[in-house]
Design a protein around this nucleic acid. Structure first.
Lengths: 335, 335
DNA sequence: TTGAAAGCGATACCAC
DNA sequence: GTGGTATCGCTTTCAA
């Protein structure tokens, strides 16, 4: 197991190392002999010793808020693959949106001397001050300014996404479009990019903004339940609606349930569009229109940027915006 | 950064180490001084050096077939949490069901001298021969015999699950219960535990087994699509069915779509039950009855066992069976 | 072409 | 109480 074992056989530590790494000059005969013994003994180099010596780990840490959420886990999967292809192993940690675990994981990763970090933003905004100051870092799912120069953030343009969603409904003839948001953040909705994109699209179409159509839940319960209640409340108050912009697919599902419970038809009486284009959008009945955030591209741009940073390259772009597509299905197209 | 920095300040490497680890005897005054400097300099111990010295990494590797699948990602999340609480960091790798990446990851983890391994079985049966021979290992989602003594496998009893599902439908009066399976495995369905559980439940109820009701797809396309085609085919051939045991929630969804497309009502004309109780079961319309595999328990038993193994304990049970519950919803209860 | 030896950072022993 | 020193496994430099 130990290199000694392999070395003892016939060659010195140095030679064995050279053979196994293809470095230095080694006689063909010796090479074969060492290789054979290493194989037979099932020799695996000691990573700790290696990284101690090399002062690099070829490892990156990935911190996610909630890996059981498809959106995040798809991102992690894709990140891992890209990094893996570039010769890096990934270390994925799930903080379950717990700031304490977040801090602890950051510490742990630094401790492990990761060569790079990816932080995926969650419900709760990442506390960037906790980020290390030197390690190449990518923040995903949120555009922000870094604390140091080896820092990049990657996201879609949330405002544009909401704009697109709203415009999609308006283009299909809706005139009473509601915005349904669910978020634990204390940030007022009226100052969010979501709201801005919504308002902007209304304005462009010359449709009057009605604050009664701006609904917001605090994410105290599952978002679909909360959304259903918000929409039910609106309908019960006699509010007229013919379109719903939901900030997520689960929110959209809640809205659909509420609409149907009130005897209205989704896709004709009321059009609904969700966001994130999660697998459920295709499986749900009616199939849900949604905005595809290009998760693959999001992750690959992030991986790409991180790899560049780890290679010591200086990026001219510290903020990367990934495009998105509206995917229309039954909930806006009708049967 | 380097311990030297901290040490240089006032104390020797040895003393600094003692302070930072609470080992040995150190004067209170020195202690405070060192602590302060370490804090100020943002000192983080070098993990590589530490593990090299200690010959342990307090790290476990987790290998999953597909982290974008909720079932697997929930397991990973839970595993990470439990291991984290026990002082272990986890290293999650997604093989995307690729045998080559699987082997490569195993190698990489050994290379990193992980203290333990968790292998989560996927569609494709894990190639156990590739597993290391000494490292404490847990195989999750499949019961099997280990290659060495520090080996445990954890799973539900698949046969019992299918038995429960079938019995649930029979108890509700179904007499023509179909089994719908989708799997890429070359293993014949008729020899699988699924099939055995199904047949057993039929036999117990004195219901005749009809091979026309045993449907199987090869997972060449998304399982819901494949399942829909299988069920459609059955209905078009004029086969009578009043119950469907689907081996997964997506399969169940496909079945539901096919049934509805044929003008039949799910929950009254045909009862449907899925498996895994994924989030979509609750969100789908009609809500799906399913078997909850107790993912949390599955993961925590696995973590528990692994921790014990890593502590050098010898487990009396090398195979751990976790119980499961049938959760009935609209698709078997009706409105 | 091969190998002896230094040194990466941390810890544990044992003198002082 | 404190610190010098050997050691973990590996790579690298330099001498043979």
């Amino acid at each position: 197991m130990a290199p000694a074992t392999v070395a003892q056989a016939t060659a010195s530590k140095a030679t064995v190392s050279n053979v196994l790494n293809g470095t230095g000059r080694v006689g063909e005969e010796t090479r074969q002999r060492v290789l054979q013994i290493a194989e037979r003994e099932g020799y695996v180099a000691n990573f700790a010793a290696k990284s101690l010596r090399a002062a690099e780990t070829r490892t990156v840490g990935i911190v996610t808020p909630d890996i059981s959420n498809v959106f995040f886990s798809s991102i992690v999967m894709r990140l891992e693959r890209e990094l893996y292809n570039a010769g890096y192993a990934s270390f994925a940690c799930d903080t379950e949106n717990d700031p304490q675990r977040e801090a602890s994981y950051i510490k742990s990763m630094l401790h492990k001397q990761v060569d790079g970090l990816v932080f995926v933003n969650g419900k709760r905004r990442l506390d960037l001050s906790a980020l290390p100051t030197k390690v190449p870092t990518v923040v995903l799912d949120r555009i922000t300014t870094g604390t140091h120069e080896r820092f990049v953030s990657v996201d879609n343009d949330v405002r544009q996404m909401t704009h697109d969603m709203t415009k999609t409904l308006l283009d299909r003839g809706c005139t009473r479009v509601a915005l349904v948001a669910v978020s634990a953040s204390s940030h007022p909705l009226s100052e969010s990019s979501r709201y801005l994109g919504y308002v902007e699209a209304l304005a462009e179409a010359g449709v009057r903004l009605d604050q009664n159509l701006v609904l917001r839940g605090m994410h105290s319960r599952p978002s679909n339940i909360e959304a259903a209640e918000l929409v039910s409340g609106l309908l019960e108050r006699g509010g007229s609606v013919d379109g719903i912009v939901a900030i997520g697919d689960r929110v959209a599902i809640g809205a659909v349930k509420a609409i149907e419970a009130h005897g209205l038809n989704v896709g004709s009486d009321v059009l609904v569009i969700g966001c994130d284009d999660t697998p459920i959008a295709r499986l749900f009945t009616p199939t849900l229109s949604s905005v595809n955030r290009n998760v693959d591209k999001l992750a690959s741009r992030a991986a790409e940027a991180l790899i560049a940073l780890m290679n010591g390259e200086v990026l001219e772009q510290a903020q990367i915006i990934v495009d998105r597509q509206v995917v229309e299905r039954t909930s806006t197209l009708g049967q």
